[in-house]
């Protein structure tokens, strides 16, 4: 196993986020990251750039008529070499394949987006675990944390009173974050000494990305739970007991309708 003592050089950093390192090198980098907040931030930043590039690069889908022609071509090619099929069944098969492909194209994009999103959630949660990571606002008081977001987010939300939180759950602070290209409030809690990240994003019209509802319930040993209200979406990430995580999410959701 390679122990990396110096800070990650750009080449290693790129190879790490592209999953191009060998297992022993990767372990060495992970050990370094566990104790180096500066490099953890660089990795987080690079990962976010990579995810944003992937989203921006998935940009050009074939128009329906081009898709049908290209799909038909794949079916027609044997005709040129074997000349054993009549055109009518081929046309129907091509049409069916084009439909299947059009549906799978939508599915492919959604699955890709959901996977990227759960990776992004986990990356951001892991970044908060570093002992040197300090929240932008440090407070256990909801009346301090909530106003801090005024002018920083295009939406508002309520925080539960400390008495309404599940047993041994405490608000630690908050960060401004970006999730799938949307501004988000990142609320930091602890439950039984386990850290919990709760992301709050707006859920309006076209900005309500369907990829959010397809996030896997767990990733790399961390539970990912989510809930929605009419206007907001809440996503919680932690390695705490899933039942405790649910209680916290319920408390945060309940705070949105105090009446």
């Amino acid at each position: 196993m390679t122990q990396i003592i110096e800070h990650l050089n750009p080449e290693t950093l790129n190879a790490f986020i592209d999953d191009e390192l060998q297992a022993s090198e990767q372990q060495g980098v992970q050990q370094h990251l566990a104790g180096c907040h500066q490099c953890t931030l660089r990795v987080l930043s690079a990962t976010q750039h990579k995810a944003a590039t992937a989203r921006a690069g998935h940009r050009f889908a074939p128009p329906a008529d081009a898709l049908a022609r290209l799909t038909a071509q794949l079916h027609r090619e044997p005709q040129r070499t074997a000349r054993i099929h009549s055109i009518r069944p081929i046309a129907w098969t091509a049409l069916a394949a084009a439909l299947v492909l059009a549906i799978s194209l939508i599915g492919w994009r959604q699955v890709h987006q959901s996977n990227a999103l759960s990776a992004e959630l986990l990356d951001q949660h892991l970044a908060t675990l570093s002992s040197a990571a300090t929240p932008q606002v440090i407070s256990t008081d909801r009346h301090t944390v909530k106003p801090w977001f005024q002018g920083r987010l295009p939406f508002s939300f309520n925080l539960p009173d400390s008495g309404a939180l599940p047993p041994d759950a405490t608000l630690k602070g908050a960060d401004l974050a970006y999730l799938n290209g949307q501004p988000a409030a990142l609320l930091l809690f602890t439950i039984h000494k386990h850290q919990v990240s709760v992301f709050v994003v707006q859920r309006t019209g076209i900005s309500d990305n369907p990829a959010f509802s397809r996030i896997a319930n767990n990733r790399a040993g961390f539970s990912i739970h989510y809930a929605t209200t009419r206007d907001l979406r809440f996503i919680a990430v932690s390695d705490v007991n899933p039942a405790d995580l649910d209680l916290l999410v319920s408390a945060v959701v309940k705070a949105q309708s105090p009446g």
Binding site: F60, A61, A66, L67, L70, H75, A82, L105
Partner: peptide, 25 residues
């Protein structure tokens, strides 16, 4: 030849969106 092209189609069809996106770039 028919088996050959079927095998090709099975591999190529799922890549159509990616190939088109890259071709457009």
């Amino acid at each position: 030849a028919a088996a050959h092209s079927t095998a090709f189609e099975e591999l190529a069809l799922p890549l159509l969106p990616s190939l088109y996106n890259h071709a457009f770039w």
